[in-house]
Amino acid sequence: MEKTNRKVLVLIHAVLIVASVTMLVPFLWMILTAFKSNTEATSVDPFVIFPSVWRTDAFETMVEYFSFLTLYKNTLLLIFWRIFFAVITATMAGYAFGRLNFFGKNLMFSLVLIQMMVPAQVFIIPQYVMISSLKLTNTIAALVFPGVVTAFGTFLLRQSYMGLPRELEEAARLDGCNIGQSFLYVMAPLTRSSMVALGIFTAIFAYKDLMWPMIVNPNKDMMTLAPALAKLQGQFVTKYPELMAASLIAIIPMVVIYLIFQKQFIEGIATSGGKL
C-alpha cells in the first residue's frame, strides 16, 4: 500500500512537472532571448540556449524607442476607471436585481442576459461610431467607454446578494434604515469578496484587451501596452532580442502584481466563475 502510494505520488509529480515546464518555457525563452545579441539569438550551429554575456542592449533600445511610462500610465488609467465604474454600477444594480421587487425588474434583467450572450464584436462598430462622432478618439475616456457598465459584474453581484440571509435586511429595517441605508451600511459591505473578484476580473480583461484600444487610440501617446506591442512587431520584425525585451517590460508589472496578490487573483477568478 505504502509503496504504490509513493509510486502514484511520483507519477503525479512527474505529470505536474512536465506541465509546469511547458508553461514556463515560453517565459524563460523570452528572458533568455532578451539578454542575447541578435547574432546569438539567430545562431543555429551551435544553437545557443544561454547568452554568453547577459546584454541589456535590447532593453536600452526599447526603452529609448518607446515611452513605456506613458504606456503603463494609459494602461493603468484604463484599468482603474474600468474597475471604478464596474464595481459601483454592478454593486448597485446587483443589489436591486437580487434583493428588491419592483415593476420592470425581470424585463430589465433580460437586458443583462442579452449582453452576456451576444459576442462583444457585435457592439464594436456602433461604439466606435459614437466615440468618433463625439471626437473622443485618443482619450482615456474612449478606452474606458465600453466598460462603464458590466453585465457580467451585475450578474455576479446579484448572485452574491441572493446568497445573503433575509434576516439581515429585516433587522436593518427594524432599526429604521431605509432601503438605501441598508444597502450602503449592511448589505454592500458583505459582498466585498465578490467586488474584489469583479475588480480582478475587470483588471485582467482590460489589460489584455487588444482590439478596442487599437481602434480608438492609435495615437502613440494614448496607446495602451497591448496594441503598442502589436505595432512593435511590424517595426522590429527580425530583431528578436528587442521584441522579447519589450514583451518582458510589458508583462513584468502585471506578473509582479500577480505574484504578490496570487491568492486574491486565483480566488477572484474562482469566485467569478463559480458564481455563475
Partner: peptide
C-alpha cells in the same frame, strides 16, 4: 501559480 501565469501576460507578448 505556474499554470495560471499566462492569464496575466498580455496576449501580444
Amino acid at each position: 501559480m505556474i499554470f495560471f501565469l499566462p492569464m496575466v501576460a498580455a496576449p501580444a507578448a
